[in-house]
Simulated scan of single mutants.
Amino acid sequence: MAGTWALLAQHCAPSAEAGRDAVTLAEVRVLRRVKVERRLAVLRRLARCEQAVAAGDAAYTMHRERFPRAPKHDAARAAEQAEQQTAEVLLNESCALYLEQRGFLVFAGVRSAMDGEKLRAEASSARLRPLILDVTDEKSIGAAGASIADTLGGQGLWALVNNAGTCVSAPLECVSPAQLRQQLDTSVIGSLAVTQALLPQLRLRRGRIVNVSSGLGAVALPYLGAYATGQFAKEGMSDSLRRELRPSGVSVSVVRPGAIMTPLWGKVRETGKKALDQAPDDIAGIYRSPFERFVRLNERRAQLSRTRPEDFARQVFRAVTAPRAKSRYYVGTDVRVATVLSRLLPDAALDRCFAAATRPGR
């Protein structure tokens, strides 16, 4: 008992320790100030980088206006328009052809036999083999897995690239449960179902899984909440898979592309307009103007982006061929900046960045 009292007295009695505690608190305040100043310095450097990129884009535009390119041949223009079918198909085709041209035997999931014939016609060899695959249909997944196993004959599969996806774009208040299920079924549940079906083949080769996410897996933008939900889920699923499969020797990487100018942005506008039209008039009236402004701004950003589908395909190639696969690969300056900002800035600062996009009016 005496020992207890002595301990309490020693703890409560004022001494030089109190002065040292006060100095420590002052040091903590200084360290916090230094940390904030460092964050601000990083943000200033990022702002200067973005200004430099914008200046370069403006100079490039002025150069093209002054010295315009020769008009393309009609056949070339028609081919370019025909190529832009959907964002998902465009990226998948680019990735499949890139890997096939570099010696891989590629099983490319397609939606229909016609899509498969078009893709086969663009290939440089018989190494590209289209497979009809619906990632939301268990029977389709099972049939594709059995076909791959029969073709490989026990050799095993080296890599699986999960890039199936859709984009439900609308204010979350206007997103129906059916639309959200569609987003998650395709982006998350379908990717996991395909992975489960092909894991026995991947284990035979101690192979690799590459899950394609998005910049919205780091920062959730307004009016793309359903899509961001799927991307955050895929990022978390990839982290868990990577840790669970490590004892099997199967690596898991995420490829995170930024804005790429594809027909995706037309789909964003269409699906958002459809959701707003189905919402009650008083609810739709709240969001219609800022949503239209948001779509225009993002279309403009995508148009100015110099990231191309070939850049995406190159990063996928690195993920499946690097001696030691990284956990994440980034495609484009914008996604790198977004990833850094998501780590440095508090939520309140990020919210202020998007405040103008959600403000009614104009």
Results as ranks from 00 to 15, higher is better:
307 T>L: 00
161 V>F: 02
21 D>G: 10
251 S>Q: 05
180 L>W: 10
75 A>I: 15
298 N>Q: 12
334 D>H: 03
149 A>H: 07
127 R>M: 11
131 L>H: 02
290 P>F: 08
308 R>Q: 12
162 N>C: 13
174 C>N: 02
102 R>C: 06
154 G>R: 07
141 I>E: 02
163 N>T: 07
99 L>D: 09
329 Y>V: 00
23 V>E: 15
16 A>R: 08
318 R>L: 15
29 R>G: 14
267 K>Y: 11
323 P>E: 10
346 P>Y: 02
207 G>W: 01
348 A>P: 04
231 Q>C: 09
16 A>L: 13
216 L>M: 14
204 L>I: 08
16 A>N: 05
3 G>T: 13
56 G>M: 03
304 L>M: 12
83 E>L: 09
235 E>S: 05
354 F>M: 08
347 D>S: 13
285 G>Y: 09
99 L>H: 05
18 A>F: 12
214 S>P: 12
255 V>L: 00
141 I>S: 08
331 V>L: 00
190 G>I: 10
245 L>Q: 06
238 S>G: 04
224 L>H: 11
340 V>T: 08
163 N>F: 02
154 G>L: 04
80 E>C: 04
287 Y>F: 04
336 R>E: 04
340 V>L: 15
287 Y>A: 05
30 V>P: 02
285 G>L: 06
246 R>F: 10
352 R>K: 13
238 S>M: 05
147 S>L: 11
159 A>K: 01
126 A>W: 02
157 L>R: 00
164 A>E: 04
138 E>D: 15
90 L>W: 03
79 A>L: 14
133 L>D: 01
121 A>H: 09
56 G>W: 05
170 A>P: 00
37 E>R: 13
70 A>F: 09
124 S>R: 13
14 P>I: 09
360 P>I: 06
248 S>P: 01
342 S>L: 03
187 S>H: 13
134 D>M: 08
7 L>I: 10
106 V>C: 06
28 V>E: 14
55 A>Q: 07
135 V>C: 07
82 A>N: 12
326 K>D: 08
299 E>Q: 03
161 V>K: 08
157 L>G: 01
81 Q>R: 15
315 Q>F: 04
344 L>D: 04
204 L>P: 00
191 S>E: 07
50 E>W: 01
113 A>M: 10
227 Y>N: 01
43 L>C: 14
93 E>C: 07
40 L>W: 11
97 L>S: 03
191 S>V: 05
326 K>Q: 14
48 R>D: 11
75 A>K: 12
349 A>W: 08
191 S>Y: 01
184 L>Q: 12
